[in-house]
Structure formats: C-alpha cells, structure tokens
C-alpha cells in the first residue's frame, strides 16, 4: 500500500485527512508563524458540523463569536489578512445580528484553503520538515 506521506503530496485534502499529516503540517506552519491558518480551517469545519438540533443556539453564537474574535477581528492576524474585506464584513454582520448559520464561515474557509493550496502547502512539500519525515 501507498505510505501515508506519499498520499499527503497528492492534495491538501489528502494531507488534512490524516492525523499524522495534520500534525506534521501544523509543526511546519507553527515554524512559519502561521499555525492559525490550520486551526481556523478546522474551526470552520467543526462549526459547520454542529447540528442545529442537538446544539444550543447560545453555544453556536458563543462559538461563532469566539472564532470571529480570535481569527478575524484583528486585521493584523495571519488569518484576517488572507480574508477579503467583504467576507469579513459579512461574518461581522452575522455575529452582530446574531444570525448564526452553519455556512457563515464557508467563504472565509475557502479563501484560507485557496491560500494554503497556492502557498503554504506546496512550500510544505518542499520543506525540510516534510523531506526529513519521508
């Protein structure tokens, strides 16, 4: 069978579908001071997965606020800098009006994902971190 680390080179999704791959990618991103990119990406996925039925409205609002505050509010943060102003305004509006929808972070997540696919992921595949692991 194909070793996992070769699969990681196939696509960003293959990498993010494997726990060891995620850990290695996180180590690499932390060295580059952009570990928040990955945490934000997973936070968006986790937020979308919250079931409206089994999760209290209050909890969803609190979580949406926490994601907004930690990653988007500070315009100098690594995540915030990669998200389009219109996308940030949309999320801010959702939080302020308390209109909390499962897909409210989807666009922001896509923007961060594109950035990782075009930038940090190919750099990771050429990094010492990855090459030493393989």
């Amino acid at each position: 069978p194909t070793p996992p680390y070769l699969k990681w080179a196939e696509s960003l999704h293959s990498l993010l579908d494997d726990q060891d791959g995620i850990n290695l990618f996180r180590t690499f991103l932390q060295q580059e001071n952009c570990g928040d990119l990955l945490d934000f990406w997973f936070a968006c996925s986790g937020f979308r997965k919250l079931e409206p039925s089994d999760s209290k409205v209050e909890k969803r609002l609190k979580l949406a606020k926490a994601i907004y505050k930690k990653y988007i509010l500070d315009n100098n943060g690594i995540v915030s800098r990669q998200i389009k102003p219109a996308t940030k305004s949309f999320i801010k509006d959702c939080v302020l009006r308390q209109q909390i929808e499962p897909d409210m972070f989807d666009q922001a997540q896509m923007e961060i994902q594109s950035m990782m696919e075009d930038n940090t992921y190919p750099v990771f595949l050429k990094s010492d971190t990855y090459l030493e692991y393989t």
Partner: peptide, 20 residues
C-alpha cells in the same frame, strides 16, 4: 460554563479525522 477557548478547541478537535 465553557470558556471561549475551550469551546474553540472542542470545535477544532471535532473536525479532525479520527486516528486510523
């Protein structure tokens, strides 16, 4: 009551793939 950080961590962990 969960702190915001705990809530965030729980959310991030929930999206991670399970160990194969």
């Amino acid at each position: 009551i969960d702190s915001e950080d705990d809530l965030l961590q729980e959310c991030i962990s929930s999206a991670m793939p399970k160990k194969k």
